[in-house]
Design a protein around this nucleic acid. Structure first.
Lengths: 263, 263
DNA sequence: CCAGCCGTTCCGATATACGGAACGACGCTT
DNA sequence: AAGCGTCGTTCCGTATATCGGAACGGCTGG
């Protein structure tokens, strides 16, 4: 890590990430501008990646897009998320019980990545998408994941993250967020109302692996209007139980928790 | 393309592909051996990719595994497969009608990649997985995709592919396969019985995009025992119709086919 | 307690990847 | 119709980034 990273590989990685904007296809010149690299460099990167199947060229427009190998790799990751198997039926049950969109998210840096979801059957519903990335500090899943993260990770996050204000209700002060996370840790669940987007509410609880470590969060998202109609305590209980159900499937037994030293 | 590919990026790509074996995590030394690179080079590749989130280190074992960013990228690819949206309900309908496992596959080089699937409800069923790769020459989906591929692609495939024998029924002679593909092209569907694995049968039909180009194949897979019980012609008709249904959703209108010149 | 493996770090020689400029093709405007 | 802008692609020389080999400390199992 003290080593200087490989420049070319870093460029290739950033190039791939440029496609996370979900644009259909990107051209050489466009990428050259976004990455601040010469056109020839980008072109060489693209042809190299194309030879490996990571990108492919649109024969009509000349632009490039992500290749099937990337899709394959993504599926390979999904397989190792035992979550995908463990959470499936629990998500369905939770959606049935609450009628709202349900998601499972994992922590990655300063963001939450949704790795599984089921949408509400209501016409007015939260639109989520697997593979989507949302901030930690203004989502219930994010708060859960950060609340139960190892202390050094949490402190490092609080020290370095930019707590962007999305609404007047967003927590933007590190100290305030630290206290909120302590509350989450104590009561075992988190909520977020109007914090990321006005009119959107969510509630989440932790999922633990066989070692008792919190590896993901399960939660629901709903319009604030419907959210208010449900007794908060009761809803929280439902979701915490859903999280425990998934945890049990991952091999965690509540009775004999494995003590983790936070070094 | 006449350019020499970027060595480091090629190495990085091959490194990522090493994880396609679906092993939980791989170590530096192991990868060094498989890729034929120095340990230090592999280590630098890994730390670089880790900094970008494409891989992550297992803190317990020290090994590395694919990171969440790869999952994100994979999901970004899925979005642009309009197939995923177009084929969903058709797949469900097809499974309901036939009771068997159904899949949608796309061509990538000498392989077929399954991008969508629904499993049979029978206890004895074909196990498929999205992101899986199977050979072209011994699968019904593969034959469909290659039969309708542009002629130069097909001829290049027949000239360069190694038609590995999986069973006594596998077509391993290029000339024989060429004739089989001509038949597929003429009648509009393909089957494969005992060709990849004894006891497994499949039948597939093409899916066309708005330009009339065959971009994917839809099909079913079943144990030969059940397969025999269904009248072949009738089953083929069902699947061809399913393919046409997906094609229509992709914007293809049968009445006004766009003529493609095969340069 | 030692032997062998692991992941990590350092270093010097050389191959390599970068930016800049030029090319042919395409599409839009004038 | 002609011209201008942009596209993706190719070529080239130089600066430097990348590779393999060797050495290190930690861990595990014999």
């Amino acid at each position: 890590m003290t080593d200087a990273p490989l420049q070319t590989v870093t460029n290739a990685a950033r190039l791939l990430k440029a496609f996370l904007t979900r644009e259909e296809s990107l051209g050489v010149s466009e990428l050259s501008r976004r990455l601040g690299l010469g056109k020839s460099a980008v072109h060489r990167l693209l042809t190299t990646l194309a030879a490996e199947g990571l990108v492919e060229q649109d024969l009509h427009t000349g632009g490039y897009r992500l290749g099937l190998v990337v899709f394959e790799l993504g599926e390979a990751v999904r397989v190792h998320m035992d979550l995908h198997a463990a959470a499936g039926s629990v998500l369905a049950h939770l959606r049935e019980e609450t009628g709202e969109s349900t998601q499972v998210g994992m922590l990655d840096g300063h963001d939450v990545v949704y790795v599984d979801r089921l949408e509400s059957s209501h016409a007015l519903r939260l639109f989520t998408e697997t593979g989507r990335r949302v901030p930690v500090h203004c989502t219930s899943s994010g708060k859960v994941l950060m609340a139960f993260a190892p202390e050094p990770v949490r402190e490092r996050y609080l020290a370095t993250a930019t707590l962007a204000r999305h609404t007047p209700h967003t927590l933007t002060d590190p100290g305030e967020l630290r206290r909120a996370l302590a509350t989450v840790r104590a009561r075992g669940w988190a909520d977020a109302v109007d914090e990321r987007e006005i009119g959107v509410a969510s509630l989440a609880a932790p999922i633990r692996n066989a070692h008792g470590v919190v590896v993901a969060a399960i939660g629901i998202g709903a319009p604030v209007s419907r959210f208010r109609a449900i007794p908060r305590k009761r809803l929280a209980r439902t979701i915490v139980e859903a999280g425990e159900a998934v945890s049990r499937r991952l091999g965690w037994s509540e009775e004999a928790p494995v003590l983790e030293k936070e070094s």
